[in-house]
Nucleic acid binder design. Structure first.
Lengths: 216, 216
DNA sequence: TAGATTGTTAATCGATTAACAATC
DNA sequence: TAGATTGTTAATCGATTAACAATC
């Protein structure tokens, strides 16, 4: 299990898309899948897919491609998606609720075991089977439930404040869905899910398309 | 208005974060902001901020920094966030509802003017002030409301089918929140918001942190 | 003035792409 | 066998970073 290589961030970001396709192939009973086929599906270059898959350590067979079952195992292993990680949601609004309902997360080892909100109407209820607690209970619940990851879906105005709380509770990893760059002590992992970035890229593409083909 | 430069995708993705900070500076009444200050706030290199800001065409003053008001205008102009774009939501579930409630979108020119869903319980109602229609009405509404952008928040299993519908209605830009790579004709812009990618990066970071500091 | 910050040009770094022998 | 696909090594491309003169 020690022959796990390093991979660049762009490579890591592409792995889930590969996994998605490879798992579909597995369900269809295919034994091998070629980098060429994956590349076509995702509109990537075959060489890029091969290079990326090389980081999993799985060797393919010329003419046939890569062994499907091994690849699924290796990618899941590389991403650590075979291990269970308990997570909590901070902010049981629509976004938080949407994430609680995502079926893929538990399939990738992420189990949302609790949500926290300041709305007394929600506290004590269950959303999608996930119990909603009040914030003062955070520390104890985190300890008891062995929470490793906190998902931040509170309003931006509360983001830093809640992040501070999380850090205080010993949370080491935060998935930040707010548009605030939160400040945390060194060592705490923060992954920012940046809607604005995506929208910016989209906006520029739309502007360029409009500029290219002016009026109708 | 023609001195808009090109910018790389990484640069475009950083611009909203810059804008966020610069607008805060504007609210505080600051006339100038230096690249150094922005860099510190975002934990980036000052040289990178300067390079990025150079694409806006705004020239800074040594010692002082960049003129705040001009930067705000230039970045918004570059991102085309001063122009109104009508958008629709496909799939009025929790994620769709969350997006309808985002206050930042209208501030960046994006107005969600309608939502579409197959749930008869939702059709005819308003969510966050946005009317929910049935899918068969799509074509007519798109035309009447002059919709430019469609936001795809349907279940993955329906993603391609709904995307086909959108293309058929003449939609040129799709913001895809499903984990499916949808197929569209050339010319149609698709921006994929990829939760799995973010989760993959986070997972690997967590694994590496764990491997680095083994057991406790 | 002194010195922090800009803008530009050059150097470095890293990711993508190309080329091609090896091979199932 | 023939040929599509792999894996490796090298070339290219593009983004980041460094260096530094110009300047407010």
């Amino acid at each position: 299990m020690k022959n796990i290589r390093v991979a660049s961030t762009p490579t890591i970001k592409r792995l889930p898309a590969y996994l998605h396709i490879i798992e579909a192939a597995a369900r269809e009973g295919k034994e091998y899948i070629s980098g060429t086929v994956i590349a076509e599906e995702l509109e990537l270059e075959p060489i890029q897919v091969r290079k990326d898959l090389a980081t999993t350590g799985i060797v393919g067979k010329p003419r046939l491609g890569f062994p499907v079952a091994e690849l699924v195992q290796a990618i899941n292993g590389f991403l650590d998606w075979n291990t269970v990680h308990n997570a909590i949601i901070l902010g049981a609004g629509h976004l938080g609720t949407a994430l609680m309902g995502y079926r893929i997360f538990p399939r990738h080892g992420m189990h949302i075991v609790a949500a926290f909100d300041s709305d007394t109407g929600k506290i004590g209820t269950k959303i999608n089977g996930v119990p909603v607690y009040a914030l003062p209970e955070l520390k104890e619940r985190v300890r008891k439930l062995q929470v490793e990851l906190a998902i931040l879906t509170v309003p931006s105005s509360h983001a830093q404040q809640v992040a501070d709380l999380l850090v205080d509770c010993g949370i080491q990893s935060i998935w930040n869905f707010t548009n605030i760059k939160i400040k945390v002590p060194p060592g705490v992992i923060v992954q920012k899910e940046d809607l604005s970035s995506g929208y910016a890229v989209l906006s520029v593409k739309m502007r360029l398309a409009r500029d290219a083909a002016p009026e109708e």
